[in-house]
């Protein structure tokens, strides 16, 4: 199995109210490519911090974060931005679509950074929206969509540039059970059909059930890794 993400002795500390808070503590973790991971743990265990480090949104205090063979600590701010544009797609709990743009324009946004013509960008955005089942709503602005539809648009935006890794931070946190399941089902399809490596932070054991593996963090260290596929195989 090819390694997608390597976390080597990573430490991350935040200063809060004059106190030093060690969120990740010498964390060691290896994740395989084309695998759907759920990241679980109690609040403050470092899940979102780890996701931000893997996505190049934040820097580790020490240790190495290697994604797709690239050591993110060696990249400058501009290089990191370019790396994000080419290699990762983000899905957030609050959807985080730009309210002034339509669904298609939101999906087109990351494609602006790729060397594509206008028509190519439009075609690629429409394909991504078709994949998430929202081609008929591409002219709608976020406020005209339901929560589930907004999250689907966010997923379309995350896959528009065809990144190898998709990072999802509580993607179903704001959704009802039925809608959440359909979004999780979509993520699972992206993993199985398009071979995307997915790392999803969640508090919800049911959501974690859609992943291949569940990584449990505890106080900034690796607790254990559950293999849902193996468990399913045994059952």
């Amino acid at each position: 199995m090819v390694t997608a993400i390597e976390i080597r002795s990573v430490t991350k500390t935040y200063q809060r109210g004059g106190e030093s808070l060690r969120v990740l503590d010498e964390l060691e973790l290896t994740m395989d490519a084309s695998t759907f991971y759920a990241l679980m743990g109690p609040s403050g265990s470092g899940k979102t911090t780890l996701l931000n480090l893997v996505g190049g949104l934040d820097h580790a205090d020490s240790g190495r974060v290697v994604v797709g063979g690239t050591d993110l600590g060696s990249l400058s701010g501009g290089e990191l931005a370019q790396w994000r544009a080419e290699n990762v797609g983000f899905v957030f709990q609050g959807f985080n679509l730009l309210p002034v743009l339509t669904a298609r324009e939101n999906v087109e946004l990351p494609l602006l950074l790729a060397p594509l013509s206008k028509s190519q960008r439009r075609a690629q955005a429409e394909r991504a929206l078709e994949l998430v089942g929202l081609k008929d709503r591409m002219g709608h602005k976020p406020r005209e969509l339901s929560g589930g539809q907004e999250q689907r648009v966010a997923i379309a935006r995350a896959i528009a540039t065809d990144p190898k890794v998709i990072l999802a931070d509580e993607p179903t946190g704001d959704l009802d059970r039925t809608t959440a399941d359909s979004v999780l089902d979509l993520l699972q399809r992206l993993n199985r059909e398009l071979k995307k490596t997915i790392l999803m932070v969640t508090h919800d054991p049911q959501a974690a059930g859609f992943a291949d593996k569940v990584v449990h963090l505890d106080k900034g260290r690796l607790g254990r890794i559950d293999d849902n596929r193996a468990a399913a195989g045994r059952a």
Binding site: G55, L57, A81, Q82, R84, A85, E86, F90, P110
Partner: peptide, 15 residues
């Protein structure tokens, strides 16, 4: 501010 965060996450440069 949040829009700025989204754009940065998508890979838009600070400049």
């Amino acid at each position: 501010t949040r829009d700025v965060g989204i754009l940065k996450a998508l890979g838009f440069t600070d400049g």
